[in-house]
């Protein structure tokens, strides 16, 4: 599996839109996840399956903590996306524009060709899909039963397949179903399909640090974030679990979280009820309620988060 994320070169642009930090390039999303343990939150719809909230799609929103961490590590830099687009679109004329339109056109043609091939091979694909499905079931069955099988084969959806599958996706959408959408004949038989590109610029093509953006401003809990991240935890937003951070021992794709982390200031009084609530909630959802804070008096020679102390509280259930 050779993917484009292997060709990602740092630093990476982070889109800043109205004070929010976002990533639109899936290769960057995958790269940050694999290489830097940064998960962000996917907040968009999945066009292949747009009527559900269980899976989310691009863009990925980064916590300011994550953005700050990446900038500090010089993994990423921040681009003011609105300014960039205004400037770009206002001046997109002549040859540049032609080139842009031409690239979309050829992409659209390619998809059209694929779709036509696809409809020819419809029956074959249907057959093979059944086969893959069976294989998938087999492999996932093995995976969950904890037997000693080899890693399951690649279960990814191939792109043409997902385009063709579009027709089934709307079925969840009650009265607003568009049954004829994908399977029907397209606009006309020789024109390219219109394409909406996902990103506006290639990750590597931007001039590095075009205009300097200030570092993301982060909450006080940043040192706890940095502390946990430096210890190889994966960190997600915590509101659903009543905490600052939901802390995973590995990629949240594969693992349950271990800790519900809440940050306190070093000398802050912590109300007893808060400890009880957190401890109780954590234990009930099988996670540790973790409180942490930074000793601001301590030596600050090391990395961010080095002077953080953490404690884990469990509800005794007595």
């Amino acid at each position: 599996m050779v993917h484009s994320f292997e060709s990602i070169s740092e630093p990476i642009p982070i889109s800043l839109i109205s004070g929010k930090y976002m990533i639109f390039d899936i290769s960057v999303v995958t790269y940050l996840r694999r290489t830097h343990h940064i998960c962000g939150t996917l907040i968009g719809s999945i066009p292949q399956n747009p009527q559900q909230n269980i899976f989310s799609g691009l863009p990925m929103e980064l916590m300011p903590e994550e953005a700050k961490f990446l900038v500090q590590k010089e993994v990423a830099y921040i681009v003011d996306d609105l300014a960039w687009h205004k400037q770009r679109y206002d001046t997109l004329t002549g040859d540049d524009k032609k080139k842009y339109l031409e690239s979309l056109r050829s992409a659209g043609l390619k998809v059209r060709k694929a779709a036509q091939d696809n409809s020819k091979k419809r029956s074959e694909i249907a057959l093979s899909r059944i086969a893959t499905k069976k294989a998938k079931e087999k492999s996932s069955g093995e995976g969950s039963s904890g037997t000693l099988a080899d890693p399951p084969p690649n279960t990814s959806l191939d792109d043409t397949g997902s385009v063709a599958e579009d027709s089934t996706t709307d079925s969840l959408f009650g009265g607003e179903s568009t049954a004829s959408r994908a399977s029907g004949t397209p606009i006309s038989s020789d024109k390219p399909f219109p394409v909406t590109p996902t990103t506006s610029y290639a990750t590597s093509s931007l001039p590095q640090n075009p205009s300097h953006q200030p570092d993301p401003s982060v909450p006080l809990s940043y040192s706890l974030f940095a502390h946990l991240h430096a210890r190889d935890y994966y960190i997600m937003p915590g509101l659903r679990f009543g905490c600052d951070y939901n802390v995973y021992p590995g990629d949240p794709l594969r693992f349950h979280s271990h800790f519900l982390a809440t940050s306190f200031e070093w000398d802050q009084d912590i109300p007893m009820l808060d400890l009880i609530g957190g401890g109780r909630l954590g234990t009930a959802v099988k996670k540790g309620f973790l409180i942490g804070g930074e000793d601001t008096e301590a030596d600050t020679e090391g990395e961010w988060g080095d002077n953080v102390r953490t404690f884990c509280i469990e509800w005794g259930g007595m």
């Binding site: 905490c243 109780r280 009930a284």
Partner: peptide, 14 residues
Amino acid sequence: TWAWMSCINRVITQ
């Protein structure tokens, strides 16, 4: 904070 509120509400809901 909302995190606090969310925590308490979840405990009570549980």
